[in-house]
Design a protein around this nucleic acid. Sequence first.
RNA 1: CGCGGGGUAGAGCAGUUGGCAGCUCGGCGGGCCCAUAACCCGCAGGUCGCAGGUUCGAGUCCUGCCCCCGCAACCA
Length: 503
Amino acid sequence: MPKFYITTPIYYVNDKPHIGHAYTTIAADVLARYHRLAGDEVYFLTGTDEHGSKIAEAAQAAGKSPKEFCDENAAKFQMLWDRLDISHNQFIRTTDELHIKGVEKFLGRLKEAGAIYDGEYEGLYCQGCERFLTEKELVNGKCPDHLTAPQLIKEKNYFFKLKEYLSKVAKLIDEGKIKIMPESRRSEVLGLIKQGLDDFSVSRESVKWGIELPFDRKQVAYVWVDALINYISALGYDEDGEKFKKFWPADIHLMAKDIIKFHALYWPAMLIAAGLPAPKVVFAHGFFTVDGQKMSKSLGNTIDPDALIDSFGAEAIRYLLLSQFPFGQDGDIKAGNFSIQYNADLANGVGNFTSRVLSMAEKYLSASGGGGVVPEKDYTFSDEVAGIWRQYKEAMDRFQIDAAIEMIKKLNGFGDGYVERQKPWELAKTDPEELKKVIYNLLEIARHLAIMLYPIMPETAERILSFLGQSDWKNRKLAELKDWGGLEPGTKVEKGANLFPRI
RNA sequence: CGCGGGGUAGAGCAGUUGGCAGCUCGGCGGGCCCAUAACCCGCAGGUCGCAGGUUCGAGUCCUGCCCCCGCAACCA
């Protein structure tokens, strides 16, 4: 059984989760669920990044200890993932003992390998960026990202020999061993390599809230280095450990484009230095604006994920967020149109289609025990549906979640069109035998629709499948589920509840 | 020479390797009555930002130009 190890970034817990975190995590969940459905052994990791001076400061401002502060915020993330039905296998926190051990081991390994050297660093440090800036990066003496003047800081630091490993990373990217997606990000990263990057420091002397270096307890790991290591520490980071052997390297690190450099260059370089394989895919999705504007607290247009869930439900939000624009690109979330789209795609689309099909089955094929009973199979549509499935799979395999959603809409439309052409309500009077075939086809289309829907809207899919009398589908692989004719004659179906009430 | 995204039908967007311009919403007109006043069909609506170039052929490649948006903090 192939394995599929997928990760989200670990989110910085200096505040509660926002819509961007939800977007990344839902996307990862969709891919994780798709791969489980396909029969892969999936390991889906998410978590929180809890060290660094910013956290320490925020905790102090809140009058709490760093750990207390982190506990509270980490819980908010966990609660949101719970509400959104995120199916992660593990939620790692960088304050977990497991992680701390992993970081110590990994940094120790880098030191042994001679990839770390100590030196003194004097530089302009930007609090906001949590890193030293070069003179060249400054604009009018200020950090271009934070518009604050960096402070001149001098401290002992350990450095990672990035320059020494960069050519190896470049080679892996070149050979496609590390796939950077989408394509535009790949060229961006190759451009960065061409420009040349400096060795970076992996430790901080001035920061206290962090993981102490095993070879120098006066220093703590730089928060970025600490964070990246979570992808292996979560698995136990033990070359002989079963979990680690099975799942590493990651099949895909998913993230937003702002942190591509860390994942596509720094992290693979560190892994190479430590003698470990690099991740197979580094996928950076885009940023989005909301209703044409960048989200910001001062503009008051931030969207609380919980409020969205309250209005539309977790299932609809998963769908709405991912159907807005091509996955990977920048785009705009038209929150103002959510109710329009909800009604169009979910209430009038999926909800109405399953409703009309199931109620026809119940009405025209009612059995003595009540409810509809699936009639004889008909093979009319094996080709059409197989074609849609092929495109759906292609889309998912290329991480084009939006394109996969298009296929769901296409199948839905195909089903609605079929109803119109066949007019079951007339066949009910003129041709009962033909009617049975038509109903069979419709029920079967509904089943396929539900399976396709599963990664995006798992709860909805399960409900439709249960209305269709399906119970053991979870034990089957997609390769089998997507074949035409999966619905067995004699199965009882029921109209079920209204899936998406109009709003 | 800061970085990045974008200019395609009224609105919002697709257009992978160049090959007769598509989708959704909205508008108009029909149809249907199984369904969540839902569904189906048809119509209107585009000089694909501008100007050159390459090509048998460019929204798609090249050059130049114009315009819009994001880039303090939070932060995917």
